[in-house]
Amino acid sequence: MQWRNSSSRYGVISILMHWLVAVTVFGLFGLGFWMVDLDYYSSVYTVAPMVHKSIGILLFVAMLLRLTWRWISPPPGHLQSHGRMTQLATTWGHAFLYIGLFVLMIAGYLISTADGRGISVFGWFEVPATLTSIPDQEDWAGLVHEYLAWAIVIFAGLHGLAALKHHFIDRDSTLKRMLGRE
């Protein structure tokens, strides 16, 4: 298997980044969904948010690396069998996922740093609070974070269903390319 993308195939780095981000996003969603119902006396009341924030910061770094890799090694072109509407939907769908994830993570950062404290990433390093003067910052960033998280997870689910449709109904190589089999 090749490391870099070619005009017809994804390379191993793009494939690994894709699946790492996908698993991380769904994992963070599940953790976030679970932890909002924790009460003060729960044994993981402070641990769960710390893990969520730390992984979120690492995901932000991974997404920056993914964008850089996308620039260094552009993804393969659209399949010839895809019509113009499918190509547009693919382009706009991927743009929504990329932009949506960055907005989601920035909103999470704004929630976490609204009180002026930085975010410790597993005790390895701290991301400082740089923007704390927005009125009701924690509240509006929280709403953006919550609704966008739902939108991204639902859209990513549709993205996965579309890949399955391409594989089982259209019988094209869309899914195989992202699994490194084509």
Rank of each mutant, 00 (worst) to 15 (best):
S73N: 05
P76T: 12
G77W: 07
G77H: 12
H78A: 15
H78R: 08
L79N: 08
H82F: 02
G83M: 12
G83E: 10
R84P: 12
R84F: 15
R84L: 15
T86I: 14
T86K: 11
Q87D: 14
L88F: 13
A89T: 14
T90K: 09
T91D: 15
W92H: 13
W92P: 04
G93Y: 08
G93S: 10
H94C: 06
H94A: 14
H94N: 15
H94S: 12
A95G: 11
A95N: 08
F96D: 07
L97G: 06
L97R: 03
L97E: 06
L97P: 00
Y98Q: 08
Y98H: 09
I99A: 13
G100K: 02
G100W: 00
V103P: 03
L104Y: 02
L104E: 04
L104H: 04
L104T: 02
M105W: 08
M105Q: 07
I106L: 14
A107L: 05
G108F: 05
G108W: 03
G108P: 01
G108K: 02
Y109M: 11
L110P: 08
I111C: 10
I111K: 09
T113F: 00
T113I: 02
T113H: 02
T113G: 06
T113L: 01
D115N: 14
R117V: 11
R117M: 13
R117L: 11
R117D: 14
G118A: 08
I119F: 06
I119C: 03
I119E: 04
I119W: 04
S120H: 05
S120P: 01
F122E: 01
F122Q: 01
F122V: 06
G123L: 05
G123D: 00
W124K: 04
F125A: 07
E126L: 01
V127I: 15
V127E: 13
P128M: 08
A129Q: 07
T130Q: 13
L131N: 09
L131P: 06
L131H: 10
T132D: 11
I134F: 13
P135M: 03
D136S: 07
Q137S: 05
Q137H: 03
D139V: 14
D139C: 04
D139R: 13
W140A: 00
W140G: 02
L143N: 13
V144D: 05
V144N: 07
V144A: 02
H145I: 09
H145N: 12
H145Y: 09
E146L: 14
E146S: 13
E146M: 10
L148F: 09
L148H: 05
L148M: 05
A149K: 10
W150Q: 01
I152K: 00
I152S: 04
I152M: 10
V153M: 00
A156P: 05
